[in-house]
Each structure stands twice: as C-alpha cells, then as structure tokens.
Amino acid sequence: MSVRIRVNGVEKTLDVDPEMPLLWALRDVLGLTGTKYGCGQALCGACTVHLDGQVVRACVTPVRRADGRAVTTIEGLAPDGSHPLQRAWVELAVPQCGYCQAGQIMTAAALLKAKPKPTDDEIEQSMAGNLCRCGAYSRIRAAIRKVAGMPEGEQ
C-alpha cells in the first residue's frame, strides 16, 4: 500500500506495510533519525511527533493513520533550531544524554501551542508521558516555564 504523508511540510509517498509503525517509516524509510526509539510500547515518549498538530507516539502509531495527514518531527519544528523551546533548551543546557529530548520538546511544543500560559499542574499532566532516564525533569520544566514567560522555578 502506498501512504501519502506531508512530513515537515514536504509531500512524501511511501510504499510500505500500512501497519508499519510511523516511527519506522520516519527513521528507516525517510532517514529522519531525530525521533528516537525508546520503549516501543508507548511508555516513554521518546518517539513523540505531531500528527496534524496532535501529539502521538510514533512507535505505536501505524503509518496508515498518517495517510493524507501532516506529520511534524523535531527536524521540522524549526529547521534552523530557532523554535523558542529549542532556544530555551540550549540556554538552560537542558539535555544530559539527550536521548529523550526530541520527544520532550515535541510534547512541550504542543502544550504551549494549545496553552501558551500553562499552570504547573498542566505542565505536569501534559509532560507526564515523557520520561527522562537522566532525570533532567527540573531543567525541562524550567525551560517550558521560561518560554511561557513564567519564573523558571516552580511557584
């Protein structure tokens, strides 16, 4: 089956098994390796991308679900790395190993688009599915708060 997906603004036609996880299509077929494979079971958030603006875990999303729709990955968030979250991530030196960070940023970007001024509880609830084995949670939260124009420490 061929699947047509708009990936980071570019139309792509993929000749793949419709049940192939979107993550495989992105990484192995399209070479977009910014999105990471962590657990493969929707438990860690490393593979988070946007499907028509909504957060999905690419590891459990069959590629057929993306047919005719738009997918945004970390590479497409701001191709030059100028998204306010990316800049805040650099300024606050958020990542440690970095493996979880593409997923963290993609979830945070969806959150701030829907709620530019989230409460601490809203940040917590939205980010709860993105794990960080290095434990960079406090810097991740601080960077989100910085972009939202809130004090970087929790209130």
Partner: peptide, 13 residues
C-alpha cells in the same frame, strides 16, 4: 485526556 497526553496519543483504532 490533556494536550500531549490524549488517549489517542497512544491508543489506536
């Protein structure tokens, strides 16, 4: 669910 953690972020059809 909430933005970033919608039910359908993980659960499929």
């Amino acid at each position: 669910g909430v933005v970033g953690m919608e039910c359908t972020s993980c659960h499929q059809d």
